[in-house]
Design a protein around this nucleic acid. Structure first.
Length: 225
DNA sequence: TGCCAGGCCGGGT
DNA sequence: ACCCGGCATGGC
């Protein structure tokens, strides 16, 4: 079985076992943008509190966020952790959004996929995963989001070298799979679900590579998740 | 009860 | 070009 075929197999197996994850959990595209920053290295449960606070304070809005003092914003998003850093990062992004795009997310999303990605990456505090999460889940473009779980699981399966870069992994998926935002979105969500449930609790040593594969081709999915 | 979560930056080699 | 410390709350 080729690597490309195995990546499809993983997807089918995870989808069978866990069902559609329906990511991103948000009411609006702008909430995806905010959540993508807040969830950096942070439990989603904590992010939910911060998002609830922002809504309650009427701050789930580009112009309102841009106008809010960083200290106050920090207090509002405090439950998400790294709150001083994330307040700055959010404001960095909101400044670009308001000054260059009139505070209109659709104006930003009118850029081509590559221009959108580059624009986001220019913002201090927006790295590849955060940018791609926004491009995929808020703008609906087919870019594959890579995270720590993705790397661990692929490394564990011997599909990448331990030194593989973000772009290496992204290319692997984007070369193997159909160019489909819904597929990419579901795939990444499933990897996170599997990573949380399985990689950590049942194989905490999976940071070390190489290790034996978790799922041989043709092996029942129940042994994977 | 410690360890760690859906990263990223900036300064040091 | 890598490597590393810093950033911080809340859940299990």
């Amino acid at each position: 079985m080729t690597t490309d075929e195995r990546l499809w197999t993983f997807y089918d197996a995870m989808l069978d076992a866990l069902g559609p994850q329906g990511w991103w959990p948000a009411e609006t595209p702008f909430e995806v943008v905010v959540g993508a920053v807040l969830t950096q290295n942070t439990n989603w449960k904590n992010v939910e509190r911060a998002i609830a606070n922002l809504k309650r304070e009427g701050l789930m809005d580009p112009v309102a966020l841009d106008a809010t003092d960083a200290d106050r914003l920090g207090e509002v998003i405090r439950p998400a952790g790294y709150f001083r850093v994330k307040a700055r990062r959010l404001k960095n992004l909101m400044r670009v959004l308001t000054k260059r795009f009139g505070g209109d997310l659709d104006a930003l999303f009118a850029l081509s996929t590559s221009a959108l990605r580059e624009t986001l990456l220019e913002v201090s505090g927006i790295g590849p995963e955060t940018a791609d999460s926004i491009v995929l889940y808020a703008a609906g473009r087919p870019v594959f989001v890579v995270d720590a779980y993705t790397a661990r699981i692929l490394c564990r399966h011997g599909l990448i070298e331990s030194g593989a870069t973000y772009e290496d992994l992204q290319s692997l998926f984007q070369g193997a799979l159909a160019d489909d935002a819904d597929l990419f979105g579901e795939y990444h969500a499933l990897l996170v679900a599997v990573g949380k449930d399985w990689c950590k609790k049942r194989a905490p040593q999976c940071d070390g590579c190489p290790l034996e594969p978790l799922l041989e081709p043709g092996q029942p999915v129940t042994e994977f998740v």
